[in-house]
């Protein structure tokens, strides 16, 4: 946000955590998206950042898992720094950001390594960060280890222009439907999925409805003589 210094609000340094991933910009006082800001703080610009990378030690069993994972990857002649883009510890949860080309290998390692043993994948959740240029689409996997009673998160990101992620169905067959669902809603293409087709929406549906640039699709409702716009068309604050 280099233009932030040029605005008036730039004179007062805002306590922005710059280490994290910037996912968007919030303007004005209350986040009114239409209808203008009448608070007098309409020029206020704040960046929204997700928690940034954490440095060691992570605490608890997190270090153990990270060490084991890095060691196991090195054994396979894969530089951990190449596969793991960054590690985030936030709110007591461990997240590995994985480079997408290495995802299946990392997942297989996490599943098979006796010290890791993340046997259960609880599916994939897509997130569309429209403001995160070059890394718009994220696929978030949660892996659970029943052996050790642990839960970690893998996060993979792709640009909107090339929404391809290798499929994990080979490693975790349970991801079959989950990946189809994420494809259906976000247009993320999971390469290597046996039958990547729409699952929720009708087969001839146009677009991917849960992306941020897809409208909610509500219609205006008539109530007591007035038209109430759909929730995404209303004047609102966020």
């Amino acid at each position: 946000m280099s233009d932030e210094q040029n605005t008036n609000s730039g004179q007062v340094p805002a306590p922005v955590d710059r280490s994290g991933e910037v996912i968007g910009v919030r303007k004005g006082m209350f986040g009114a998206n239409n209808g203008g800001d009448t608070s007098g703080y309409g020029g206020l610009v704040r960046t929204v950042t997700l928690p940034g990378a954490t440095s060691r030690p992570y605490g608890g069993w997190f270090d153990e898992v990270a060490d084991e994972l890095e060691g196991a990857l090195e054994e396979q002649d894969l530089l951990p720094s190449e596969a793991i883009e960054k590690t985030v510890v936030d709110r007591g949860e461990l997240t590995f950001h994985i480079a997408r080309e290495h995802l299946p290998r990392v997942a297989r390692t996490l599943r098979d390594d006796p010290a890791l043993r993340f046997e259960l994948c609880t599916g994939v959740s897509g997130v569309h960060y429209l403001g995160d240029k070059g890394r718009e689409l994220h696929a978030v996997y949660h892996l659970r280890s029943l052996t050790h009673g642990r839960l970690i998160r893998l996060e993979v990101s792709t640009p909107d222009s090339d929404p391809h992620i290798p499929s994990l169905v080979e490693v975790y067959p349970t991801n079959d439907w989950h990946e189809r669902e994420t494809y259906d809603f976000f247009g993320l293409v999971f390469d290597g999925h046996p039958a990547l087709t729409r699952i929720m929406m009708p087969d001839d549906w146009q677009g991917f409805p849960q992306r941020k640039d897809y409208p909610l699709g509500g219609i205006a409702v008539e109530y007591k003589g007035a038209q109430i716009p759909a929730p995404d068309q209303r004047r609102s604050y966020s």
Binding site: G20, I23, V48, T49, L50, P51, D90, R91, E93, T95, T122, V127, V140, H142, R144, L151, R153
Partner: peptide, 8 residues
């Protein structure tokens, strides 16, 4: 506050 979490 920004962030993500998984609760089960």
């Amino acid at each position: 506050p920004p962030g993500q979490t998984y609760t089960a």
